[in-house]
């Protein structure tokens, strides 16, 4: 088999390698960042585990938490993780409108989750059980709110992404970013599994 232009062939291959390397490099870098963020959450979990019984005369988790409410939050976040995955699938097929649709769904579900969480905080604070009440509540609010802060950052990022996709369509650069944001969003769902289990489910066990 002969190739009429071997030089061009090699140059193209080099460009492809460079492009592939660049993309895997960014995604791997973001993965390492996510791992460091896991350690950040782990430290907060450790603090929660140590302070969980320090209610200082205030309410315990079992007295505060409403499990059906938290279950609803969990399912909303899980669904948003799923719809984020569907956005990536559409992006791989370069279906611009599908991507925008699924990201909008993800954004709305994420916003609902955040509203539910803030509403829960508001309820506790209105009852006088804010983070000032006890060591337990300090650690509860900080752990859950740190997750909420990440969700907020994710929502801002997603809003920017949607604008970006509308303006530029799905280029290679945009596809890379879509992969990054989906990684971030799935990671937040993974962290929530542990918040759901350790903070809420363990918290109400008798």
């Amino acid at each position: 088999m002969s190739n009429p232009m071997p030089g061009v062939e090699i140059a193209n291959t080099n460009k492809l390698i460079a492009k592939y390397d660049n993309e895997t490099k960014t995604i791997f870098g973001f993965w390492v960042y996510i791992m460091t963020d896991c350690v950040l959450f782990a430290s907060l979990f450790a603090v929660f585990a140590v302070l969980r019984n320090n209610t200082f005369g205030g309410p315990s988790g079992a007295q505060l938490f409403s499990l059906p409410y938290v279950l609803a939050e969990t399912l909303v976040l899980l669904s948003s993780s799923f719809s984020c995955g569907l956005a990536v699938l559409s992006a791989q097929k370069r279906h611009k409108n599908h991507v925008i649709f699924w990201f909008l769904i993800t954004f709305i579900l994420g916003a609902i989750f955040l509203t539910l969480e803030l509403n829960e905080f508001h309820k506790f604070i209105a009852m006088g059980d804010s983070w000032r009440r006890s060591g337990f509540l300090s650690s509860y609010f900080t752990l859950v709110a740190t997750h909420g802060l990440h969700i907020t950052i994710g929502l801002i990022w997603m809003a920017v992404m949607i604008g970006y996709i509308i303006k530029r369509g799905i280029t290679d650069g945009v596809l890379k970013r879509i992969r990054l944001i989906s990684l971030f969003w799935h990671f937040l769902d993974v962290v929530w599994i542990f918040i759901f289990t350790i903070v809420y489910l363990f918290g109400v066990l008798k």
Binding site: S2, N3, E9, I10, N12, T13, L16, Q92, L175
Partner: peptide
């Protein structure tokens, strides 16, 4: 030449987003 071609195709699958992932 064959080898280089195969490598190229392999990379193309990895890189090109038109291919199913």
């Amino acid at each position: 030449m064959n080898v280089s071609n195969n490598k190229h195709e392999h990379l193309d699958v990895l890189v090109s987003s038109h291919q199913p992932e």
